[in-house]
């Protein structure tokens, strides 16, 4: 299977980006073909995602029975955030959660010992080996809801704000990846990580609404603990009202967060003494 292809390229330049992109293709293809056996499940999960997206969009309507605008957000603009919530949550479930969940198994079964001996960067391996196939369409659904929100708020984004949006969404993904890395590091140390996936769930759940919808002190706390990066800032970029400084500060913070997460992960590996020895 895939193991052969990996070991053939062993020993070549570790920084070879193409090799890692190729590996990613192999990882995801193998997860994909394993799940293709359950096509009915894929259809059922997609239907469920559609249901929950519509559910959330209708649910927030209740707030607007009493006022046309809440803390500067009207219904269409709020839908942009709700859509981004499903986008980011979909990223969590498709990219990060399956790998975080596997981490406990790797440690308990001693698979991590085996992974450490592979001629592939361990962090890359444990971060991207798995793919949540069932949730792959969630980000698409979320973006669609955001588009509907933009249309109903009559806010057609300019090319500039689209670029800003893509940048801020990438920062959101970086933040989420950094959090996943920290949680993986914690999993190595705690072994029992039943609650760790919950931490990521809570962080994303907090981003269901724009931070302005919460009054202080909650609003300030969620801006400092960077929940605002997940949906509020990308939405503001899309609506053309993002504080321009964030376009510079955001990517720096995102890169720093991932760097810190990597340090935490590598340190946890150094403390790891093996499960099978």
């Amino acid at each position: 299977m895939t193991e052969n292809e990996i070991s053939v390229t062993a020993g070549s330049d570790r920084r070879d980006l193409r090799r890692y992109v190729g590996l990613l293709g192999i990882f995801w293809r193998s997860t994909f073909s394993a799940e293709l056996e359950y096509r009915a499940n894929f259809a059922a999960n997609t239907a469920l995602s559609v249901f929950w997206t519509v559910w959330a969009a209708l649910g927030v309507r209740v707030f607007f029975r009493f006022s046309d605008s809440i803390a500067g957000w009207d219904y269409g603009e709020l839908l942009v955030v709700v859509g981004l919530f499903f986008t980011v949550n979909g990223l969590r479930q498709a990219l990060f959660a399956p790998n975080l969940n596997r981490m406990t198994d790797y440690i308990r079964n001693g698979t991590l010992d085996f992974l450490l001996t592979k001629p592939v960067n361990t962090q890359f391996m444990v971060s991207f080996r798995q793919l949540g196939v069932y949730n792959l369409l969630d980000p698409v659904l979320g973006i669609s809801l955001s588009a509907i929100g933009l249309a109903s708020a009559n806010r057609i984004p300019t090319p500039g704000s689209l670029v800003a949006f893509v940048l801020m969404l990438a920062v959101a993904a970086l933040m989420l990846y950094a959090l996943t890395l920290v949680l993986m590091a914690a999993a190595v140390r705690l072994v029992n990580s039943e609650g760790l996936g919950n931490v990521a769930f809570v962080a994303v759940e907090l981003s269901r609404f724009p931070v302005q919808l919460y009054r202080n002190p909650v609003q300030t706390v969620l801006t400092i603990v960077p929940v605002a990066f997940l949906t509020t800032f990308p939405a503001e970029a899309l609506l053309g009202r993002l504080d321009g400084r964030l376009l510079l500060v955001g990517p720096v913070i995102g890169a720093l967060a991932v760097a810190l997460g990597s340090v935490a992960f590598r340190r946890s590996l150094r403390s790891y003494s093996g499960a099978s020895g």
Binding site: S67, I70, A71, F209, R215, V218
Partner: peptide, 24 residues
């Protein structure tokens, strides 16, 4: 974690209610 969703709704409602004279 189950209590998180109602707490979020609570915070939003408090903002709605504080937003001025409403019929809430």
């Amino acid at each position: 974690t189950g209590a998180l969703f109602p707490m979020l709704l609570l915070f939003v409602w408090l903002t709605v209610a504080a937003g001025g004279p409403t019929q809430v």
